[in-house]
Design a protein around this nucleic acid. Structure first.
Length: 739
DNA sequence: ACACTGTGAGTTTTT
DNA sequence: CTCACAGTGT
């Protein structure tokens, strides 16, 4: 096998096949390449059967990418390598043996929306104060408990949760069991339970998987750690890849200690550091290294690159978020003129809320963009409705789905009828569907209300030939007149919604094409579980030629030619709720590190003097992360005074809501504005290339570039002492030099 | 049963 | 500001 394209540490990581191995893979250091090569090496050089290799990832995307690349490197037999997400792997393990835990064959997977609606009924059932006990709060609490302990109930009790919470938890678990369903966290926990209570099953998998690899190890939680440990206990051939500096999911139960203490947990572990970065230029890496150095307790590593030359990082101070957005949009248009593509650009922000203004400005300048994240495909109402029909056909005991679609499309079934049915079902210990079909449980009136629905469901069930999910889905949509229903319910959005439904059909088709028809599994069953484990229908994302907008979290694992890191302000990034807690602040810093290292060639950091938050203007000082980057970046303008180290800064001050609007005067490129309002300082003076200027702080320099005009004009100056700087003419203290 | 109106809350979210 | 949801009115 040819390992010549690998560098020394990479080669070492590939060739260390026996025993525990920790690969500390810095950003952009080629970890996927190493994982792929390592798998190919095991198959080709060590004669390991592909199906004895288990590779675990977090996202479907990562799993797919790895599968593709492994097949490319090791040939078709590599298809039999077990490459799964943690949840997908657990779902697979459980689907063959869930009966050993008291589940019926073919359990359902409840996603967050299903959980929420179930919790909603529980809050009602237990008559909890819904101001104190919200769906969201219970969901977070239960998930936290399940992420931190394999005995969530004990965990809740140990944290002194009130009786109400304990009761809600018990009922939640009971109802889930009654519906033969598991939530995402259960998939992991129940797998542990299965392994612990059925030694024969654990033995089987231990024996099967001789080599185990885990991607993004820094993001594993307690359950995932336990699953890995159980499987790897005998042979210890466990290879984990990760970067403690990129651990950004602590708030979701990821335990950074898993990676920090790997060598303790698996004695004799080999450690390989991948520190050569193949992605970014030196200036970008310098800034990244500087920021992350402010975190304590790291696995020390220093990224380096052979690309020692590179464009300097640009820091931009905007007055408000509109100006920030305008600056970015202009830069992109400018780049486009110079031959860049729109999809070379990524705009990153801390929270989704920040995307609004960005979108607005991009739209107004007709720059195509796409937003990652937002409402996940399978969370869309119309998609969920359609899926709920399939779920109810598959499992009539699924009360969550029953409630969702009993009145969709409208069948004149309201709260009243539903409540009576629920009561009856509860009393008799049967499902809503069963209760609706029995004349002895509810009043004739209510029975009559549900009769058309239950009859419909029987008709729909008969459409299913146990072979084609697509045929079933299309039949269901036709029979319920879903297109007409969408049209009637919202004339503005029905087309997009119907498209989503069609997309679901497409997804089903894709699934069917890949589905092994010889398998004993019911295709519908398998389809539903696959769908539950997919956040997004990835194919929609293929659109190219667009500027990429996403949160910093969503950017992990991606790279772009040019990255704009926006909202670099205290209280925004780092976020307000993280500032006080050192652990959380450290995670924000890692998030910053992730953001910076997404850029290949050019990085922009921007902040706004004030921005509108919840309808008010809040002025925030520049992010401490800018300070922490030190002289690897240069701060703009004269107005910048380093933040005092003490916390005496008055945070979140609300400044006058009557500030001037941030709109730039509309001018045609090249003409001199007549600024509608004189900008602060000496800004109205016009500069041109080659002009000598004097800056209040940086001294004398030469103008080497001008972009935009009016209050958004940016001027690039090469200062005699020091580097190039980009300044806003409106705010920088600039004067024409006399010399 | 459904449409309307007022209130309150508002990170990040791989599965 | 802007969305989600609970409560009110027809």
């Amino acid at each position: 096998m040819d390992l010549s394209t690998l560098n020394e540490p990479q080669k070492q990581a590939v060739e260390t096949t026996e025993g525990p191995l920790l690969i500390l893979a810095g950003a952009g250091s080629g970890k996927t390449k190493v994982l792929t090569a390592r798998t190919a090496f095991l198959i080709a050089e060590k004669n390991v059967s592909p199906y004895r290799i288990l590779a675990l990832t977090f996202t479907n995307k990562a799993a797919n990418e790895m599968r593709e690349r492994i097949i490319k490197a090791a040939g078709n037999e590599a298809q039999r390598v077990w490459i799964h997400t943690f949840h997908g792997f657990c779902a697979r393990v459980l689907s063959s043996d869930c009966e050993r835990l008291g589940y019926k064959k073919g359990f359902l997977i409840y996603d967050v929306d299903d959980q929420q609606s179930l919790l909603g009924t529980i809050i009602k059932d237990l008559q909890l104060n819904d101001k104190v006990y919200t769906k969201r709060m219970l969901q977070d609490l239960f998930s936290k408990a399940k992420n931190h302990s394999d005995n969530p109930e004990a965990y809740l009790r140990a944290s002194y949760q009130p009786r109400q919470v304990m009761e809600a938890y018990a009922l939640y678990e009971k109802k889930k069991m009654a519906a033969n369903a598991m939530d995402f966290d259960d998939l992991l926990l129940k797998t542990i339970e299965l392994f612990n209570t059925c030694p024969d099953i654990l033995e089987r998998y231990r024996d099967l998987f001789r080599y185990i690899m885990v991607d993004e190890y820094q993001d594993t939680n307690m359950s995932q750690y336990k699953i890995i440990s159980l499987l790897a206990a005998a042979h210890q051939n466990l290879c984990v890849v990760g970067d403690d500096d990129q651990s950004i999911y602590g708030w979701r139960g990821a335990d950074i200690r898993n990676i920090l203490e790997f060598e303790k947990d698996f004695p004799g572990a080999a450690v390989v550091r991948l520190e050569q970065n193949y992605r970014s230029s030196q200036p970008i890496l310098d800034a990244a290294n500087r920021v992350i150095a402010h975190n304590a307790g790291r696995k020390e590593k220093k990224l380096w690159t052979a690309r020692t030359e590179g464009q300097p990082i640009t820091v931009y101070e905007a007055r408000g978020e509109k100006e920030e957005a305008t600056f970015i949009a202009e830069r992109i248009l400018n780049g486009k003129r110079l031959g860049k593509r729109f999809d070379d650009y990524a705009i990153l922000y801390r929270t989704h809320a920040q995307s609004r203004i960005m979108e607005m400005i991009l739209q107004s300048m007709t720059i195509p963009y796409k937003i990652y994240g937002g409402t996940a495909f399978f969370s869309r109402t119309e998609v969920k409705d359609a899926v709920a029909y399939l779920r109810l056909i598959c499992n009539p005991g699924d009360d969550v789905s029953f409630q969702r679609i009993a009145n969709v499309p409208r069948r004149n079934i309201g709260m009243q009828s539903l409540e009576e049915l629920k009561l009856a079902a509860d009393k008799n210990g049967i499902s809503l569907f069963e209760a609706a079909e029995r004349t002895d449980t509810v009043s004739p009136k209510v029975f009559a209300k549900f009769a058309p629905f239950t009859e419909l469901m029987h008709t729909l069930s008969n459409l299913y030939d146990k072979k084609s999910v697509v045929a079933l889905l299309e039949g269901v949509l036709r029979k319920i007149g879903y297109e007409a229903y969408l049209k009637a319910s919202d004339p503005k959005t029905w087309e997009a919604r119907w498209e989503n439904v069609q997309e679901l059909v497409g997804f089903a088709q894709e699934f069917e094409d890949c589905f092994d028809s010889d398998s004993e599994e019911d295709p519908l069953q398998a389809f539903l579980n696959t769908a539950s484990l997919f956040m997004t229908a990835d194919r929609v994302d293929e659109e190219s030629g667009c500027v990429n907008l996403m949160t910093l979290h969503a950017a992990k694992g991606l790279e772009f030619d040019t990255v704009f890191l926006t909202g670099m302000e205290e209280g925004v990034f780092p976020s307000q709720q993280s500032i006080r807690e050192p652990e959380k602040l450290a995670e924000e810093r890692r998030l910053c590190y992730v953001g910076v290292t997404r850029a290949r060639n050019k990085l922009f950091l921007s902040y706004a003097e004030s921005r509108s938050l919840f309808g008010q203007y809040a002025a925030n000082p520049p992010s401490r992360f800018l300070d922490e980057m030190g002289d690897t970046i240069s701060m703009p303008g004269s107005g910048f005074v380093p933040r005092p180290a003490s916390a005496s800064v008055h945070r979140g001050a609300v400044v006058s809501p009557h500030r001037e609007p941030f709109t730039a005067p509309k001018v045609i490129e090249g003409t001199k504005p007549v600024s509608r309002k004189p900008a602060a300082g000496a800004a109205s003076a016009a500069f041109k290339d080659g002009d000598r200027v004097k800056h209040g702080m940086f001294g004398a320099g030469t103008v080497v570039g001008i972009e935009g005009s009016g209050s958004t004009q940016i001027i690039t100056i090469k200062f005699d002492k020091g580097p190039e700087k980009r300044l806003s003419t409106a705010y920088a203290n600039l004067k024409p030099a006399e010399d």
